[in-house]
Design a binder for these strands. Structure first.
Length: 178
DNA sequence: TACTCGATCGGA
DNA sequence: CCGATCGAGTAA
């Protein structure tokens, strides 16, 4: 029986470590018919606190970023380019604005595709990562081998400037042939 | 109230 | 390479 990801596990300051640890965990949603959609997380990015210029909340607290100041364990879902919903898990203690962007799950690369396939949109924004919400994360004990995990700079954040643009805070898990 | 542009994607 | 598509953020 897999256990749920508990909010307390993502309420410390090390967003980068949390991002890395989400690889291999199972993102679960329910479709319109109530069926379970579950896939392991394969790609994530950390957006780490008020100093990280790639983090939306580094410009301060606004209507959109307010949710990132909440205690970790809630979803941050927003729209980019007028058409793609981005799914993030808020991390850190209250008032430490940080989150992990879920960029890929098994057989689905790209944050916009992840949300489309799983039926995620802004109605999940600020909702807890919990079964009752209809969108949650499970941990069945599986951990990707370190050799299969890569760290790279984050995608699409050229505006952030140095040093943020080069931080290796994107993590990709790719299974190697058995 | 008028801009600008984005944590992207799919099709030329 | 380019267009789609829209709302947050900022300037005014």
């Amino acid at each position: 029986m897999p256990r749920l990801l508990r909010p307390a596990e993502v309420r410390h300051h090390d967003t980068v470590a949390i991002a890395r640890s989400l690889l291999g965990r199972i993102l679960v949603a329910r479709d319109a018919a109530g069926r379970r959609l579950a896939r392991r997380i394969t790609e994530v990015e950390a957006y780490n606190g008020p100093d990280d210029r790639a983090c939306h909340a580094s410009r301060g607290r606004t209507k959109r970023t307010a949710v990132m100041f909440e205690p970790g364990g809630v979803w941050y879902v927003y729209l980019v380019y007028g058409m793609h919903e981005m799914l993030n898990l808020v991390t850190g203690p209250r008032d430490y604005p940080a989150a992990v962007l879920i960029r890929g799950v098994e057989a689905i690369d790209g944050p916009g595709r992840v949300t489309r396939v799983l039926g995620v949109n802004r109605r999940f924004n600020a909702q807890p990562c919990a079964r009752a919400t209809g969108l949650w994360i499970e941990d069945d004990g599986f951990v990707p081998p370190a050799a299969e995990v890569q760290a790279t700079p984050r995608i699409g954040i050229d505006y952030a400037g140095t040093p943020w643009i080069e931080k290796p805070w994107r993590f990709v898990w790719q299974r190697t042939e058995a």
